[in-house]
Design a protein around this nucleic acid. Sequence first.
DNA 1: TAAAATATTTAAGCTTACTTAAATTTTATT
DNA 2: AATAAAATTTAAGTAAGCTTAAATATTTTA
Lengths: 219, 219
Amino acid sequence: MSVAVENFVKAIYKNGKSNNNDTKPGNIAKELGISNAAATDMAKKLAVKDLINYEKYQELKLTDKGTKMALNVVRKHRLWEALLFKLFDMSLHDIHREAELLEHQTSDLLANKISEYLGNPKFDPHGDPIPNANGEITTTDTSISLSNTKEGKQYIISRLMSDDKEFFDFCSQNGLKYGNTVLVSKQFSSNKMTQISINNNTILLNEDFTSIIYVNEQD
Amino acid sequence: MSVAVENFVKAIYKNGKSNNNDTKPGNIAKELGISNAAATDMAKKLAVKDLINYEKYQELKLTDKGTKMALNVVRKHRLWEALLFKLFDMSLHDIHREAELLEHQTSDLLANKISEYLGNPKFDPHGDPIPNANGEITTTDTSISLSNTKEGKQYIISRLMSDDKEFFDFCSQNGLKYGNTVLVSKQFSSNKMTQISINNNTILLNEDFTSIIYVNEQD
DNA sequence: TAAAATATTTAAGCTTACTTAAATTTTATT
DNA sequence: AATAAAATTTAAGTAAGCTTAAATATTTTA
């Protein structure tokens, strides 16, 4: 399938999981940087191909076939991120951008080779789960956002859910990395700020950050 | 630039080096699997972009800008082949097919990272030279085709110039691999066949094969 | 709950990269 | 050198994936 189609189903999948859970054409259009009209147009075309269910003015819903396609692309994206992260010294943001292109030009065979080479990893360098060859995500995510953590407890960073360059630059400068340990020293519930300690540094994060950094409680 | 444009200048570059040295639209069209009309069309468009010099009914000539673009794509193609060959157990034909797609979705940054990771190799797994980041091929190719070798001498395989699956299958089954040694036991000039010995096996090759297998004399 | 704001859809049109068919030019052949 | 064959070019048309503008429906808010 074309790049435009793959990106369209991927955007529906992604927005269905977050982004206000809104998969109406306007939100998908914003995600993809195209006009609302183009999104409606594409939605109708993909309904004919049985990739989405389309009803006027309603949310776009992926069919099983569409979900499978989205997960196949997501798998390739995350495998590329994992491979590039392992082999090369590149920023997470750059890695994301390369993967965004490579994901559409990767055969299932190559994806499987990459997976095998990496030891069939369950997560990419952001902590996002990598679907298996059948398009299934077998891991159950028990992580919570930093904004929902408790004062005085230690957590391990499990996901950095963003593709923004500024965010990654900030994270890498401050040791906010998949697998690292943070201590939540204070929750300022009034203004939704969170104070954390990491590598002997104290950082104050606002909700823009704490809502997309996911962690697991340290045993 | 678009995939179609990149493939077009690449085809001119490639056909200019071999394929009867014919870069007229018809031959480029055949190379790309498009109609002659489409090739003429594209030629005119690329002339406007100063990628080729176009004169009616004449050969298509790459400008400096066009040559640079072609070499940039060739560099990425060959770097991908080298990387996939190193990391994964895949046939040369499969590797070629993947590289054919990946080459268009690779930033210069990533290409340089791949090159660095591989130790800035000068050749890909077919023995084809890899242009450097400036689009220069610094190595001088002294190899000759198997059809031009002398009886009784030993040669080292330096290039397998094809992207045909059957050819690669035959080669890998018979030890015809980049870097391997062959003894030319007999040249049948009458019917343009060449008899070689490799791994204690004797093989008789016709000109279809001997013209695309390149070798260097063993010192 | 009616008006205002917002979002979606429809309609018309554009560009890229093709296609086939017909016209024209070049190349090969005798 | 004339004619036949082959290649190139021109012309007209198509599909994908967009655009903007206008029409229509939904959602918000006062």
